[in-house]
C-alpha cells in the first residue's frame, strides 16, 4: 500500500460516482486546481460504502479519488496526518468537523 493517495483525480459527478464500488474505504475531494479540500471515509454505517458517501458529496468539490480499504479508520487518520504534515493544517472542509486526536509523522 502506498503511503500517499496519489491516484488520478476523477470528476465528481453522478455518472462517475455510480461506477465506484459500494465498499469500505477512504477518499479525497479536490478543487479545480487539484488541492485536497476534504478527506473522508466510508465505514460500516455507510449504506452503499464509498458510492453513497461520494454521492452525498456531489457538488461539494470538483473531483475525487478513492481507495478501497478495510482499515478505513487508521488509513483515514494516516491521510489526515500526512496532509497536516505537508500543509501545516487539515484540509479546509475537515477543519469544520469536530476535532480528532491526531498524531504526527516524521
Amino acid at each position: 500500500m502506498r503511503l500517499h493517495l496519489d491516484k488520478p483525480w476523477i470528476p465528481l459527478d453522478e455518472a462517475n460516482v455510480a461506477r465506484i464500488p459500494g465498499q469500505l474505504g477512504v477518499y479525497q475531494l479536490a478543487d479545480e486546481g487539484g488541492q485536497v479540500q476534504y478527506i473522508g471515509f466510508a465505514g460500516g454505517r455507510s449504506l452503499f460504502g464509498l458510492r453513497s458517501e461520494l454521492r452525498a458529496r456531489t457538488g461539494a468539490a470538483h473531483s475525487f479519488r478513492y481507495e478501497v480499504n478495510m482499515q478505513y479508520q487508521t488509513r483515514y487518520r494516516e491521510l489526515l496526518m500526512l496532509h497536516r504534515g505537508a500543509h501545516g493544517e487539515l484540509p479546509l472542509l475537515n477543519q469544520a468537523e469536530p476535532p480528532l486526536r491526531l498524531g504526527r509523522l516524521g
Binding site: L3, M70, Q71, Q73, T74, R77, M81, L105
Partner: peptide, 13 residues
C-alpha cells in the same frame, strides 16, 4: 515516528 503500521485491528494503529 517513521510510519503507521496498519493491522487487523483496523480501529487503531
Amino acid at each position: 515516528v517513521r510510519r503507521i503500521v496498519h493491522t487487523l485491528r483496523s480501529t487503531s494503529y
